[in-house]
Design a protein around this nucleic acid. Structure first.
Lengths: 342, 342
DNA sequence: TATTTTCGTGTAATCGATTACATGAATATT
DNA sequence: AATATTCATGTAATCGATTACACGAAAATA
């Protein structure tokens, strides 16, 4: 078992003090060149490793950043995390991950835990709120720990965010369906307490209005992001007086379910019915009947969030920077809605 | 800005020493009940939070564990990490993630970084080795930090592992193809320097031999885990003298590529040609022509790895426990290979 | 009453590194 | 030669918590 080597061990061996060793290793200009070289050589030969915990305690900086997501086993969040990790790794930061499972109690708990662990920043995608309680968020801000929201954001003073233009995404997808000749477009909507889903819905609505179509409340079906929810939604929609001829779904999984149910009923896609989803999950392009979807460039979102963090950390504490980065969504048109090219 | 409250602040307020405060908060039995209550009440009212970094420095335990994976944005690894996080969270551990991008230099670097950060354990999936160099692994073991391999393992003394029975997985899939009447089964193999791929291949080979079929080297095509690689493999296979009538792929992505290429050539699946993959990626069941695949129960693998870690941590250091857990693979039979039911 | 235990708390070292300040030696300045 | 300056290093406090040991007071025992 290799015992831990400290700067005191090096100091003793060289008959100097730990302070000198510390300075030599940190390239302090006040150290004689010969001493520096000797220390560095000796440190290497003794296999010295700096104790990051001692450093963290002294400096108050842990070189860890916390990332909070609803769950990690979703392609979107995993990709964002990948982006964050890749951007922050060269700067010496380690990424600690936490999951909320869409539970705001867990969200609060995670925030407190990360602050306890003295992370240097927190990057997160908020969960839908059940009880309005921003205490944990303000606790973070009071501690002057940079807080950055990505994708799912909240309006809190002093918090930066990196999101995509969900309104535009919803608008583009809906406009595309209109262009393909659809005249009665339904929407599978997500939790409206989350900005992202609200904006996708608003984009959908605006696209309808801008193109002389009527918005009907009955065409908006709230769904969970699951295949089954998509199937049920189609079941509901097909019972309406006037049958819709397209769906813009705020979730790719629901879009998939919708397609499966439509096929089940022998409704031809895209000839009779067009479908577009949101998130550009990997499976959407793998399907034989590939699914049109709005891409959120998660990797870029992660990298951008990391960059915003890097800008904020080390800034003089009095200045509260609040940066709002909005990325452009990209519509990937595929078979599930391509009448013109198919 | 809320300044940090320490036990010294509490001590000063109550005219006692920090030692007493510490003992009171840690339920040391030597403390008078009235003092304990007073301290706890005061700590709460002053909004005291224990400084985990100081604790970590003193105790040498950071309450962080490191997880190293090739990449995080893969359904398999993300699910394993989810399992790890969920199992370890109740025990107060935080999960730090690192990516290797299949680069053994990065792997070594990550190992050293995690040890530097004083993690209490490392759970990892190894990357294929280019240069044989186990220095970093032994460094971990010398420091008496529990090291656990999951999925992709290596033979190193003192290291526990949680894997699935890849041999059996390969065997089951191949046997299934034989049962469906396939008589010339090809294999898309992965990097043979990794145990998992070697074992999948060996399972394939054994299943052939056990069922009176001839193993032919030319039917084994090395592929990367990608759609394109699968397409190219089919291209190669169809140029052989005797055309194969099935593929067992060690990767779902390659299996998908193979299917796409076969369809392109109007070869009917599963009638003329059967395909089975490995990993049970989400898309395999979403496809209209769903893909038969071997499930690796990643969530369970993550949880099991975490449990093995918990068993090892806190054990008397002299005893080196080496536990090898092998999970059972599960074959999910789907349309891409179901002649009997389709 | 004298002596031993027990109890509760204080003192001070420790974990490992950084850094303001002090100090003595070497060098530069007049 | 006397003084000022620079240079390299040492001294000791600090970050915040834990804990072995010491110690005085109270309680138990003889």
């Amino acid at each position: 078992m290799s015992e831990k080597i400290t700067i005191y061990d090096i100091a003793k061996k060289l008959n100097i003090t730990a302070a000198t060793v510390s300075r030599a290793l940190n390239n302090n200009p006040k150290i004689k060149e010969s001493t520096r070289e000797l220390v560095i050589k000796t440190a290497a030969s003794m296999n010295y490793k700096q104790n990051k915990l001692a450093l963290a305690l002294k400096s108050g900086r842990s070189n860890n950043i916390g990332v909070i997501v609803p769950r990690i086993d979703s392609n979107f969040f995993a990709s964002v995390i990948r982006g964050i990790e890749e951007e922050l790794h060269p700067h010496g930061y380690q990424v600690i991950i936490c999951q909320t499972h869409e539970d705001s109690k867990r969200e609060n708990e995670n925030l407190y835990t990360l602050i306890d662990a003295q992370v240097d920043g927190i990057l997160m995608s908020v969960t839908a709120v059940t009880t309005e309680n921003d205490g944990a968020f303000h606790n973070v801000l009071e501690k002057n720990v940079p807080l950055i929201f990505f994708d799912r954001s909240k309006h809190i003073d002093g918090v930066s965010s990196v999101t995509i233009n969900d309104f535009k995404g919803g608008y583009m997808a809906t406009k595309h369906l209109i262009n393909e000749g659809c005249r009665c477009i339904a929407h599978l909507s997500g939790d409206q307490s989350l900005e992202i889903f609200k904006n996708r819905f608003l984009g959908y609505k605006q696209a309808l209005l801008d193109n002389g179509m009527i918005f009907k409340e009955e065409l908006v079906i709230p769904v969970k992001s699951s295949v089954d929810a998509g199937k049920e939604a189609v079941d509901t929609l097909l019972q309406l007086q006037t049958r819709p001829d397209a769906i813009f779904s705020s979730s790719d999984f629901a879009a998939l379910g919708a397609i499966q149910e439509l096929k089940e009923r022998n409704i031809s896609i895209p000839k009779e019915f067009c479908v577009a989803g949101f998130s550009n999950e990997p499976f959407t392009k793998f399907m034989e009947l590939s699914i049109t979807s709005v891409d959120q460039s998660p990797l870029e979102m992660g990298k951008m969030s990391a960059r915003v963090f890097l800008e904020q950390v080390d800034k003089t504490e009095t200045i509260k920077i609040e940066k709002k980065v909005v990325l452009a969504p990209e519509l990937h048109i595929r078979k599930s809605s391509s009448r013109t090219t198919s």
